[in-house]
Amino acid sequence: MSITQINFVAEQKALQITSRVFIDDLQTELNDRLKTEIELATEREPKNIGKIYQDYLSKNLAFIVNDSLVPFQYIGSEYQNDQVVFYLEVTAISNLKKIEISNQLLTQTFDEQNNIVKVNAFNKNKSFILDNRNSKCLIKF
């Protein structure tokens, strides 16, 4: 399971995004895709892990705002117990009307993977459960 929370902060014209996944799951997925045997959150973690995460996220998470694909900035990550939390941001959003989210985190390795996406904007909350079959959701305001 992963949980991605997307908050629209109007004053900053920004989508502030946090994504949480289990370290073990991510490790399995990365090794599966990259054909590596890296370890996460141990003393054996590769030095360039930030780059690896960034690459992985850019291939598996996408935000389409008002019909155009917008790149996100990778702010960083941190480990919280058995989870890794990613902090991402999409800035310079004017006149937010709709967001489409494509989320394929962990779906290569885990058939039963559930990716929960929660969106908060204009004081409205909406949440979706995405999986192997449905990896996209759309919210209109």
Partner: peptide
């Protein structure tokens, strides 16, 4: 400041 903004500052 929101938690996110605090984290952002710390991570940068």
């Amino acid at each position: 400041k929101s938690e996110f903004d605090k984290k952002k500052e710390a991570l940068k």
